[in-house]
Amino acid sequence: MNILVCIKQVPDMEASFVPNRGGTWFDETALSFRMNDYDEFAIEAAVRIKEQLGGTPEVTALSIGPGRVVEVIRKAMAMGCDRGVHLRDEEAASLDPWQIASMISGYASTGGFDLIFTGMQSVDRGSAQVGVLVAERLAIACVTTAVGFSYMAGRATVERELEGGAKVVVSCALPLLVTCQLGLNTPRYPTLPGILRAKKKEIVELSPGQAGMEKPLTRVSGFSHHVSRPSGVVLEGRLDELAGRVAAVLREKRDAIRRGGVR
């Protein structure tokens, strides 16, 4: 069995973002990067199947981006992936989902993958479309937003998350692409032996052209702060003073509710 996991390196979302010179995405200079949260669940799902099947499946971790993304490929390998593929593009941040999907499907069409795992979306762009586009381009089945996954005898059973916390359980034969929601499993931390082993594992580097990158279908003409304007009163200052004022407001509102005055 061959398994592919698609991972992305993203900035820490707590950071302050500054538009780049072209005004199309953020400037990377002051940012620190890490693995997209959703992708950790994708890696864990893949490695668990490898373990379930006695280590026979080969798990490939693929990432697109500049040189720095090798860090997340190494982390994926430290978590148990066998090999890495780096689709190297220094300008990857300017690509649209269609182009990203064209490269992943271009690469995957040569690999004979039975299972492909992706994050449900990336935390920075959040388009939630690359996984499904890849599956459609490969003409394989796809189940999105997985919060439960099990595999047995050529079939996968997947729990999809729906609105309001409901779920739907579906079953599907391989080949299959699954997009992973947060909470699908508990991603493992890389161990020291895992990290050491990862250093010896192979990472194949390919160019966008070699992976069959297509032309974009969208154009970005603006990237700016979403200005959140306070709609009400803003209080700040000495905390003990503030606490007294806020406590008074809370008490007043709560008592009004209890009297049935508000609502």
């Binding site: 199309t24 969208t218 154009r219 970005v220 700016s224 702060h225």
Partner: peptide, 8 residues
């Protein structure tokens, strides 16, 4: 925190 303008 950020917004993008995207055109098809």
């Amino acid at each position: 925190k950020m917004r993008r303008t995207v055109t098809a």
